[in-house]
Design a binder for these strands. Structure first.
Lengths: 341, 341
DNA sequence: AGAATAAATGTAATCGCTTTCGGTGCTGGT
DNA sequence: ACCAGCACCGAAAGCGATTACATTTATTCT
């Protein structure tokens, strides 16, 4: 059943059918109703791929995420999807699992015109490659970023957030503070490390090189790095951990060593995942507006697709330190029926 | 830059270029190399939508999930995506957030020929509608199912798994056993409830109606239902909870009431999420092979797309009771460096 | 009323690829 | 020397929609 069939049945030309479908005001109410009736009767569905082919717009975008399994990214994905639905876009999921190659493969969908644009939640690609791509296709970066890259980017200020987290520990009186950081080849890890260092420095606190432990991004990795820290002659009394998942591993490690959080060791995480409300003790963490980041990024992308000019390059969303129990100094929180998790 | 341009530059016909791209053996090595050289030189990328239009195959499938934010579904999504990549498929993500309407909307992508097939991780649609669709399009159901539906389905046996979980409690000596169940309008909830009842009955144990509490699917919901149970004159000594997320809420509730898990109340969950290894106490839970379910489902879908006959209707994967600490009766587990989480 | 303008519809080209069908030239068998 | 068979390649149709342009019909204005 194609459009010309419908046209025949309604005694009009295919053009008219096309118009009632995508430009109804151009056709008189009478014939519009007639056509609609036929469409309804035969249950006609336009062949979207034919339309995409003809119009060169696919109404689908690509979302490239480093790890679909992570609570963090699935939240921003949801933000993306919501505005996608509102704007009539489909989203193709590209889970790279942190692989540069996979990221590179997905980017091909742009070149092949399978998608109208792309939001990248990871940025392992070379700056030049990305810049070149961005000249030809709508692209927005979210969460991660690349220095000096001329592509709209939405994220939080990781440096200041890390500083804030570290200073929380400092204000609580800690002096022996360690940092379990993420992989140094991702810029966010370097930023958070930098924020940590800035905070320490501005309070005249030394940072022992062995107090900086580079980890992966998993619970296990947090566990492992924490046990290294615990094995030190004088372990830290506070540690700022790259993200909540690793922080959970870290907490597990200190508990198993017979020590307590926060009494013996205070811990602050990053990302404010759902889990941080349920682990014992409840995790003090930096909240990123994950959903909003996704929304903002997707909104920017559709603006770009619509050729609207975007004045700013960088959109920084506001983060917030959520103080719970893992650093002490505050009453334990309970969970009211409608707790904001 | 289109195929005919490449053809001109290589002094061949467009047909030949097409052939070197998708049927290389049909063209002599000599001209093939010549064409390849031109393609490489001008960096030609075929217009995939044109190909999709012409061939009527999109090489993309639709994955409809009820909640992209859930650890459970993101794992099976990963399984799906892995075989999708292997088989050259893109996957469009459809997050319904448990809404029937959204589910129904996504199904339209099939009718409009935007995708070659669909795997459903939720089944709110009417049986008749789904059956009708399945006659015309490749569809496979995973995780959820519909009774008597003639559509390939991959899942675990929820009834026997629930029975197993409940019997674990029974064997530990519990007699006052409650069940916090999922929403009764989803079949999995009914199945797990049925398994619970079967186990109780076969051990001549009564189930007090107030020991069955229907919840939503969230941590809060688990928390709320558990507090109801705790408020009873004689609270249960063991409870089987619909899933791990709700179980976390439940654990939180008993802790806050001043009681302990498992000393005062034993809890067993379902799904074996990553989190269950990090919560205190570590959660005893039924493991579903999430990744395998996704893989299997997608493999079946590919077979169907390729018109291969599928003999079986129902593929049941094997689940496993993972015994940890939330029911007592076993030493606390630690986390070795390469723990299988 | 008739011309000028506006509204509604139809005609036909077109998007970029794949594929059927037929032609050309070569090989080898007799 | 002839023909069958084969490997290779080109011509052209066609996938199903959109849209520029042409044409017809309705409306308004003088």
């Amino acid at each position: 059943m194609k459009m010309s069939d419908v046209a025949k049945m309604a005694n009009v030309s295919p053009a008219t059918v096309s118009r009632v479908l995508s430009n109804p005001d151009l056709v008189s109410k009478q014939t519009r109703d007639k056509v609609l009736e036929v469409i309804d009767k035969v249950n006609y569905q336009p062949h979207i791929v034919a339309r995409q082919f003809r119009t060169k717009v696919t109404k689908t975008i690509l979302a490239v995420v480093p790890d679909i399994t992570s609570d963090f990214f699935s939240e921003v994905l949801r933000g993306i999807e919501h505005v996608a639905i509102n704007e009539g876009y489909q989203v193709i999921l590209g889970d790279t699992e942190h692989s540069l190659e996979r990221e590179s493969d997905y980017v091909n969908l742009l070149l092949q015109k399978q998608v109208d644009g792309m939001v990248l939640l990871t940025a392992k690609l070379e700056k030049e490659r990305l810049e070149e791509l961005a000249e030809h296709f709508p692209i927005v970066l979210a969460c991660e970023y690349i220095d000096g890259l001329n592509v709209p980017t939405v994220s939080i200020d990781n440096i200041s957030a890390a500083r804030k987290a570290t200073e929380h520990l400092i204000h609580l009186g800690h002096k022996q503070i360690a940092h379990i950081c993420g992989p140094m080849n991702v810029i966010l890890s370097r930023d958070r490390l930098r924020g940590f260092r800035q905070a320490m420095m501005s309070h005249d606190l030394d940072v022992d090189p062995s107090f900086i432990q580079e980890g992966g991004l998993t619970i296990e990795s947090g566990y492992n790095q924490m046990t290294k820290l615990l094995a030190l002659e004088t372990p830290p009394t506070g540690v700022f951990v790259y993200n909540d998942e690793m922080a959970m591993g870290a907490i597990k490690a200190v508990k198993e060593s017979g020590l307590q959080v926060p009494e013996d060791i205070a811990i602050v995480g990053f990302d404010n995942l759902k889990m941080s409300m349920v682990i014992e003790p409840h995790l003090t963490s930096i909240d990123q507006p994950k959903y909003d980041i996704g929304q903002k990024a997707m909104n920017l992308l559709v603006q770009m697709i619509n050729k609207e000019q975007i004045k700013k390059r960088s959109f920084v969303m506001k983060d917030e330190l959520i103080i719970r129990d893992s650093c002490g100094g505050k009453a334990r929180s309970t969970m009211p029926p409608k707790a904001s998790l």
